[in-house]
Amino acid sequence: MMENILEIKNLDKTFGKETVLKNINLSLKKNAVVSLLGASGSGKTTLLKIIAGLEHQNNGEIFLNGKEISNIKPQRRNIVYLYQEALLFPHLNAFENVAFGLRLRKTPEKDVKQKVMQMLEYLGMPNHATKMANQLSGGQRQRISFGRAMIIEPSLLLLDEPFGALDSTTRQKMQELFKELAKTMQLSALFVTHDLKEAIVMGDSIGKIMKGHLKQHSDLREFYEDEESGVKKEVEFWKQFIN
């Protein structure tokens, strides 16, 4: 049986009088990707920020590799949170952006060069190493952002609608790249999206947040069977054009 890398138990979060997340329970297996679906304002981003340590829950526990991490600072959690925007550091070139986490860890220069060039090649961007963020396209920026996160080998990757700002062609390419990276680098990730198809494509399993409540499905089949998931409605919609 595969062990869980992330376990969230009975987590609540309120902002003032508004309850954003209520009794959240979630588990994520090692080297697996869970897609989190939900409409805007459903609490997806808040949940990711709490896991990353950028927000604090009112109640509940978060376990990473079996260790409770609620009181650990974000920089010590080894969890990287990626935003919808690539957010490359504008004063650094692509190479230095990817090297950022290694430099924070004072990795020897020789290793930095080797690892970063290896990562850039892996991302298909070795010729863009000296380019600044404003000289890269949206898709290229997002690749560098992935490289910057993965080079430090985080225990967990949190992706908050990372392809939301991309056009459909680039988005599809990035989905394929991420799937490949996740498999090769054995990533454990929570992938937040409001796009049903993207959630199905990217996740090994799916959770859906509605009005602060999370419902996690053990596999895609179970998700399909759930009337609230919206998959059946989507299938019915496309069927009408076939018949």
């Binding site: 959690r77 990287v80 957010l87 986490g101 430090i152």
Partner: peptide
């Protein structure tokens, strides 16, 4: 935007 960049630096280990 700057707040997000600052948070990102923290989650990268800074």
């Amino acid at each position: 935007n700057l707040k997000s960049i600052e948070e990102l630096s923290k989650t990268l280990g800074g």
